[in-house]
Deep mutational scan, measured.
Amino acid sequence: ATNIVGKVKWYNSTKNFGFIEQDNGGKDVFVHKSAVDAAGLHSLEEGQDVIFDLEEKQGKAYAVNLRIK
């Protein structure tokens, strides 16, 4: 899925991951530091509006192509 809109539920910059809540009511999506770095960001803030693509690997969904809304 592409261009999914959501809000950062939480992001832990020490542990380098967090979760994004989808605006469409879907399951929360894992986001890793690598996606944050690829977006040219240092971190994510709770409540921040983002747009992302959804990829699945080994049955787990995660956010890629992250951008600030």
Rank of each mutant, 00 (worst) to 15 (best):
A1P: 08
T2V: 08
T2G: 10
T2I: 12
T2M: 14
N3Y: 06
N3E: 06
I4Y: 08
I4M: 15
I4C: 04
I4G: 05
I4P: 02
I4W: 06
I4Q: 12
I4D: 02
I4V: 11
V5C: 04
V5Y: 11
V5L: 10
G6V: 01
G6R: 01
G6Q: 01
G6F: 01
K7R: 11
K7A: 12
V8S: 01
V8K: 00
V8M: 04
K9E: 01
K9S: 05
N12M: 08
N12D: 07
N12E: 06
N12P: 02
T14P: 07
K15C: 04
K15F: 10
N16H: 15
N16D: 05
N16L: 07
F17R: 02
F17C: 03
F17T: 02
F17V: 03
F17I: 05
G18T: 01
G18F: 04
G18L: 02
G18H: 01
G18P: 00
G18N: 01
F19V: 07
F19H: 02
I20A: 01
I20Y: 00
I20S: 00
Q22A: 13
D23M: 13
D23C: 04
D23N: 09
N24F: 08
G26N: 10
G26F: 09
G26R: 10
G26D: 15
K27G: 13
K27A: 09
D28H: 10
D28N: 06
D28R: 06
D28L: 13
V29H: 10
F30A: 03
V31L: 07
H32Q: 03
H32K: 03
H32M: 07
H32T: 04
H32S: 08
K33D: 02
K33Y: 11
K33P: 02
S34P: 03
S34D: 06
S34L: 12
S34T: 09
S34Q: 14
A35C: 04
V36R: 02
V36Y: 03
V36N: 02
V36M: 10
V36E: 01
V36T: 03
V36P: 01
V36Q: 02
D37M: 13
D37T: 09
D37N: 12
A38M: 08
A38W: 12
A39T: 09
A39R: 02
A39N: 06
A39M: 10
L41A: 06
L41H: 15
L41E: 08
L41R: 11
L41Y: 13
H42V: 13
S43N: 15
S43P: 09
S43T: 08
L44T: 01
L44R: 01
L44P: 02
L44K: 01
E45N: 09
E46S: 11
E46D: 12
G47N: 09
Q48T: 14
Q48M: 09
Q48E: 08
Q48F: 10
Q48G: 05
Q48S: 10
D49H: 15
D49V: 14
V50R: 00
V50H: 01
V50P: 00
I51H: 08
I51S: 06
I51F: 11
I51K: 13
F52K: 00
F52R: 00
F52W: 02
D53Y: 04
D53M: 04
L54E: 05
L54V: 15
L54Q: 15
E55K: 11
E55A: 15
E56T: 15
E56I: 10
E56R: 12
E56W: 11
K57F: 15
K57W: 08
K57C: 04
Q58Y: 13
Q58N: 12
G59A: 12
G59D: 08
G59N: 12
K60P: 04
K60G: 12
K60I: 10
A61W: 13
A61F: 14
Y62A: 12
Y62W: 12
Y62I: 07
Y62E: 06
A63I: 03
A63W: 00
V64R: 11
V64Y: 13
N65A: 07
N65C: 03
L66E: 00
R67P: 00
R67C: 04
I68M: 09
I68A: 14
I68E: 14
K69Q: 14
K69V: 07
